[in-house]
Design a binder for these strands. Structure first.
Lengths: 250, 250
DNA sequence: GCATTAATGTTAAAATTATAACATTCGGTG
DNA sequence: CACCGAATGTTATAATTTTAACATTAATGC
């Protein structure tokens, strides 16, 4: 019943995967149907394509998902991370070489980097790289390898060694779980090597986590709390209740 | 005179670098001015932010720049590349490990890859990686290093060695200049090592160039025409006029 | 302080996009 | 072939976005 509809969506998706946008009018022409049909295709069947002010865009591309018009909860989370990153930004100094961990926590930090004259960012995450690629004042070093979609990051055997060859100043590490006794953990095992290498080689190690991660343990352990010079969080009380020492007043 | 305007644009840009979109209304609130002022800021001063159906987006982000509503000339170029890539797609087989070169020539190819069950793509270009990252059926290997904005690609000392360790089936190489006598060349020197390594290690080497590159020589020489097993182009006549043997009928 | 100019706000009109309702076409079936 | 229903087209209407014109406020120099 949706055979043709599906085929249309597929061809549109094909036209869009290369990146870019397609006007509704042009999409209709391309498929040889009316604009209304394209609209209906889009609303009837789930698709990675979204309609934004008369234009079709791939929703999965970075830079397209809305930031402020999220659900209340998501917006809150974003606010928290944004504030968190503003505090982190205070520790950054002109000329630093920063290791930036994967995940969404540190993304809002990247926009703050425009305020510096010159920085270097080392990362193994695609979303971090994309955000940094647009900053003319920041040198970007991406550690490549096999791509893991779940964390939008890369993994490779010699990543640890590659990191240790770099002169990393400050390591900004995120985590999915922080427990006083069981240490700091994340979801994916391929993240362990780069995180540990960054912790091992950096002159300063900063753990950046929001309070929701306290008392949580995730499958991949990668460090103990004492491995970090600072813990930056949004809720100190919650941290101290968990027995986590936060070295920084925010 | 544009002091405040500039500051507003900067703060908006900051809100957007993390990726995402911002509704005009919200942008106005954020800056404490009217929507009209934001509109004017955007039209008066050049900025990487663009307004798309009432939403602010970073124009530099992939997936935002329009594909089909380009100027006539650009659209033509896109069409050419698209057709070119459809021909290239015929040489791809299920299970292949493809080396995909940087530049814009091969981008339209990536959308065709959905039609295969399983592939592996090896690249050193950020735009290629972004287009491939969304394809669930394609394993992505990104060769990292220092980022070069001019070609949206990465360079490193051991990239050549890294490429030769991989079992690359087919190398799809693009170029900025192809000359019968002076060989195949590109703009940037950091592209030479990965291109040469891919040519050296791949089982099949395919040069993909549109006719506008014939008879052109660019600063960085990287291969002679005889290094390729096939040359895929959109204008055979032009090729043979230049004395370039095109092994493929398209 | 007043005049002048730039910056911003407000409003109305035009253009575009979204939604809904109804008309038409197309593919199959008895 | 007449009938049915799904798919698509058409049209009108509502909502939104864009543009332009004019009003207001803020900033600056004299």
């Amino acid at each position: 019943m949706s055979d043709r509809s599906t085929r249309r969506l597929a061809s549109l998706q094909e036209a869009l995967t290369s990146g870019g946008t397609l006007h509704l009018r042009e999409a209709a022409e391309l498929c040889g149907v009316s604009e209304m049909t394209i609209r209906r295709d889009l609303t009837t069947h789930p698709s990675p394509i979204s309609l934004l002010g008369g234009r079709l865009v791939m929703a999965s591309y970075p830079g397209v998902t809305p930031v402020y018009d999220l659900t209340e909860q998501e917006a809150n989370h974003y606010q928290v991370k944004h504030r968190l990153c503003q505090h982190v930004a205070r520790f950054i100094e002109e000329g630093d070489t920063l290791f930036i961990d994967c995940g969404s926590t540190l993304i809002p930090l990247l926009s703050q980097l425009i305020h510096f004259r010159e920085l270097t960012v080392v990362t193994y995450a695609l979303n971090v790289a994309n955000a940094v690629a647009g900053l003319a004042n920041v040198r970007l070093v991406l550690l490549g390898g096999l791509f893991y979609a779940s964390s939008q990051s890369f993994g490779s055997d010699d990543m640890g060694a590659a990191i240790e060859r770099l002169g990393i100043n400050k390591a900004l590490i995120s985590a999915a779980g922080v427990d006083c006794e069981r240490g700091v953990s994340c979801f994916h095992f391929h993240e362990v090597a780069p995180k540990q290498a960054a912790i091992a080689t950096a002159m300063q190690r900063i753990l950046v986590v929001d309070a929701s991660k306290f008392g949580v343990v995730r499958p991949a352990y990668f460090a103990s709390l004492s491995d970090f010079d600072r813990v930056v969080t949004d809720d100190e009380q919650a941290a101290s209740r968990e027995g986590i020492a936060v070295s920084t007043v925010i």
